[in-house]
Design a protein around this nucleic acid. Sequence first.
DNA 1: TATTGTTATACTCTATAACTATA
DNA 2: TATAGTTATAGAGTATAACAATA
Lengths: 150, 150
Amino acid sequence: MIRITAKNAAKQDFMSLMRQLVRTYQAFAAFDAASYRNMDLTVSQADVIFTLGNTAGLTFKDIGAQTLITKGTLTGVIDRLENKGLVKRIDTAEDRRCTQVVLTAKGKRMFGEVFPKHVARLRTRFDRLTVAERRDAQILLVKLQTIFSS
Amino acid sequence: MIRITAKNAAKQDFMSLMRQLVRTYQAFAAFDAASYRNMDLTVSQADVIFTLGNTAGLTFKDIGAQTLITKGTLTGVIDRLENKGLVKRIDTAEDRRCTQVVLTAKGKRMFGEVFPKHVARLRTRFDRLTVAERRDAQILLVKLQTIFSS
DNA sequence: TATTGTTATACTCTATAACTATA
DNA sequence: TATAGTTATAGAGTATAACAATA
């Protein structure tokens, strides 16, 4: 027997919100990953290309900080992107411990031509929301994020 | 030079919402995964235990449908849970192609005692939101989910 | 013929830690 | 001593497809 108390109702409340966050993210991630598969990229690889786009190159440290990929893993991800001819490593003169990673011409083409198509595909979906809904969703997602940070 | 046009503003708008969804989920997932690591479970394994909790057992097909883990992968996940003594396979009489997966006594203890502590830890965070914020977040997440489904 | 779960393969990511070369 | 990136190891999930047993 389950008693319907204020406490149980509140518990139900947050559990359902939590599950909804997961379901929503999974729906987005599945939609997103389908594009990357067409580009023959994994999610991590696409993440790196996206991060490098519109920059003059970033160090492993910078990329790791932005993508949340740890350095050991990042070496492998960059290796695979380099094998695909999408990025290249460049030694830096200032601090010879650092390595810059930059997009090659092929990588720039992917970021400049293929990615925009992906973005357009995403956009058609987000357009189904009103401007107010997008604004409110953004505000609430920020609030949701803050409760888990720190 | 970047022109600030209505089109660019709208693009910026949805891209930023998209990134926020990812960041929020990542913040939650990092918080969540820390608990599972303490229980010596991976996210997938915890997902299965959670799914099996309060049921009399589910088939591979059922578990796969609820967790989005494909059958080939699920065999391995269940193997590892079985090795840890948390679940067991039971052949079904009705349809001998199906296998039921049920929690063992140890698995029930984890679901009944360890998981609630995890839930309580999550709850302290969700309590930082007001009831209205949780309700609004839920509504907007459902809307966000629907734009990616179908 | 279709479905359920298993097996096999090859790849990718994760966590951890030791290692190198620089600073 | 500390930092940036590499290497090594073991484990875990993913995708794909072929397979056996059953319906």
